[in-house]
Amino acid sequence: MTPGTKALWVHLCLVVLLFALNFLLPEYHRGILSRVMVLSVFAMGYNLAFGYAGMLSLGHAMFFAAGLYGAGLTAYHLGWSVWPAFGAGFAAGTILAVIAGILALRTKGVAFMIVTLMFAQTFYLATLYFTTYTRGEEGLVLPQSARALSLFGISFSLTDPTVRYMLALVLLALVLFALLLLVRSSFGRALVAIRENEERMRMLGYDVFANKLSALIVSAAVCASAGAAYALLFGYAGSGFASIQYSILPLLWVLLGGAATTLGPIFGTLFMFYAVDITSSYTDAYMVVVGLALILLILYFPKGIAGAIRERWLPWLP
């Protein structure tokens, strides 16, 4: 088997395993896993920008939240059904990425981090300012009617745990394989090379700005789909998801799972989610866990779980 097919098999196996878990796990863990799958899509999108293209953004919450509100507001106020609402979330995140990207990519390094942080903060404050529509911190709870999905003439309710789980899995699988394809394309390899040495790539004739902007837009589109899916599947959109914390979390998940690996974001999200879940049953000081995890990771484990696996055992892992 070539490394390419081997990698494809590993990814397929993971998807099949997640499928099987739906029938094996008790209700509580199925619920957690549905959430984890949607949030790992968020992490995967972030990973494309941060891991592969080397853009350390501290503002990806705005793309997730744009998806969340794009879907949530249209479903809540305009009564849009699931598909158009999802489309609205996707479009909102993508358009926002075009504007934010064109501006923020004029900077790099620390300035880029601060600019993205400030853009996201502006977005967050906007969700508070327009509290008439968004209900601010309290958030919108989508009515049952907004969460009925019709597919091939059959109608499903997104409140059903199995439907929810399966849809989250479909989204995860689609994004996973799309990103697998993307990072192995010439575009993906160019991104990694740009991360390593921008100036060299420029002198090989690559339009560095255009490549980074495209990467950011794709990344944001993935994050926005995760946000839109989150709003529709779990029926809630609140400004907490636009706060700085939701820009930091994907960074944490990706660092933990392994930056610039296709599977890392899933591992990282899963691990962190359970770590917080377990510690919060003992203490409500889960933020200490997040903080400690960040520091220990950046100090001792900068390549993360999948990164370490790739380094030690499976060099062909994408």
């Binding site: 420029r202 002198m203 090989l204 004739g205 690559y206 339009d207 560095v208």
Partner: peptide
């Protein structure tokens, strides 16, 4: 022209 276009 920016550098990358000159390369092209």
């Amino acid at each position: 022209l920016p550098a990358h276009k000159r390369v092209r």
